[in-house]
Every structure is written in C-alpha cells, then in structure tokens.
Nucleic acid binder design. Structure first.
Lengths: 134, 134
DNA sequence: GTACGCAATGTTACAACATTACATTGATTC
DNA sequence: GAATCAATGTAATGTTGTAACATTGCGTAC
C-alpha cells in the first residue's frame, strides 16, 4: 500500500487542506504544501480548485489571487468577504441587503447580474487595537 | 522637435489613452498600444497606473486584471462596477446604499473597512437581447 | 478477459500579469 | 557646475494561470 490516501481525489485533498488554513492561499502555496502528498504540478491544483469552485466548496478571492474554503452555508446568496490587510484573515458574510441593492442597480440599467465579487479590505477588530500596530 | 507630446508625462499619456477605450485594458495591452509613443516597458505602464490610481483617475478591475478610467465623479464613495461578460463593457456606479450596508456589516464585526472591491459580472442590456446571442 | 470509451491525472511548455534592482537622464537649487 | 532628487529606462525575474497532449485507471459491453 503506497499511501493511506489512495482513494482521495486531488479535489478532496485540496479541500481538506484548505479547511485547516486560516487565510486564503494562492494556488502555488497549495501546491507547495501538497507536494509529497501526490500533488505534483500547478495544473493539478488548478483543476482541483476549478472543481471545488463549481461545487461551491471554495471561493476565489479576486483581489488576493487566492483561494479559500466556503465557510458560509449560503444558499445561492451573494457572499461578501471582509479581508484584514493586517493579519490576512478573511471572514465570509451573506447578506440579503447587498443582493437587493445590486438587483436595484440592475433594474435601472437593464443589466442582468450573474456573479458578484464583493471584497472589503480593512482591518479586523484584533488588528485594529491600538496595541497591535503591525 | 522630436515629438509633440514632449511635456506629457507617461501618466498623462496613459490616462489620455484609457479615456478613449470602451473597456478596461490590461497593463500589457496599454503597453502595446503606447509603444512608439515613448512607452517602452511594462514597468513604465505600471508606474503610470500606480500614480493614476493614487490620484483617483483610474480604477483597477480586480476580477479582470485590467484598468479603466474613472467615469464617476465620486466623492470618496464606493464605486460599483457592472461588467458585461458579453461585450466587455464596464459601467461605474456610485450608490450610498451599498456603502451603508457595508458599514452595517462592520458595525457587527468590529471590522474597519478601508477599500471595497465590488464587481458585478453579467450581461448588459445590449448583449442580453435575444437577437444577440454571442 | 479483452477491447473500448471516458474521466482523471501527469508532464511540459508557455502565456499573462506584476515587481525588483539598478543604471541613466534631466530639471532644479544652491 | 556640483549636488540632489524625481522620473524614466532596462533587464531580469517572480507570480499566477492555461494549453496541449500523453498516460493511466476503471467500468461496461461483447
């Protein structure tokens, strides 16, 4: 038996790994971490991420070029990410208000929305304490 | 007199060019277009874009890795981009509703927002007509 | 059981986007 | 005109993402 994870697909391996991370990782960071675990090339990671994205298990953070696990049991709602530029942590929110506002915009312009990227950069409550000027 | 634009900085050249475009362009597209106009390397374009970004003359569209001129006379408001995946056009909006919702999110979590990336992908009214299935 | 089809994976190369490091130039001030 | 400083040039490299094609593994029909 060459390895214990015989029956894990790459997508499963990547997902399992991402779940343990506290911040989004780049595809190449994932690759480095999973070398020796049977993941050999960038292509493999990107293929796994594409699958996980399709199934809603991960999100891509556009403004970081990085990937994170879906932490909100959203039901086709629009995710909103709060990204701390201090510690790198990302919090996922789901609000119907924003969705409503976006729909309202569309009503005016005739634009038909498909997917939304909403990423708010700032500092989390921890990093914003006076004592923790990074 | 070697050229007419002697006293234009690269930033001015890039801005002038971007103003004539209907869609965001990548830095390398800008470079290609402005070769022969004294812009010789990627570095130059990125330096110009950095300045223009700082002064609020251009926006970076994160989900496209592309750059566009600021078309909304926003006054420190949060810009919202509607991006047509059909024709590539981008419309910039400014709404106070979204800003309010984002502030509301923050109030709950203690997160202090700094800059927001809001990019809505979909299809514009033109591209969404039945006659124009791309 | 073997031939076929198909999806997953491997491998290599390359494209696209962005930054670093250091040299050169040109204008301004003293 | 020497010192200074910002803008620019140049080359190399780093990072992110995709293309193209070969190979493998597995289920199904014959």
């Amino acid at each position: 038996m060459p390895q214990q994870n015989v029956r894990l697909t790459h997508a499963e391996r990547v997902l399992k790994f991402l779940k343990r991370q506290e911040r989004p990782l780049s595809a190449y960071e994932i690759l480095e971490a999973l070398r020796g675990d049977g993941v050999a090339a960038a292509t493999t990671v990107y293929r796994a991420l594409a699958k996980l994205l399709e199934t809603g298990h991960v999100h891509r953070i556009e403004s970081l070029n990085a990937w994170t696990v879906c932490r909100a049991p959203h039901h086709s709602e629009i995710p909103v990410f709060e990204i701390c530029d201090g510690c790198g942590s990302v919090t996922e929110h789901v609000t119907s208000h924003l969705a409503r506002d976006i729909a309202a915009l569309s009503a005016d312009s005739g634009f038909v929305p498909d997917r939304s990227v909403i990423e708010i950069h700032g500092r989390c409550s921890d990093c914003n304490r006076p004592s923790s000027i990074t």
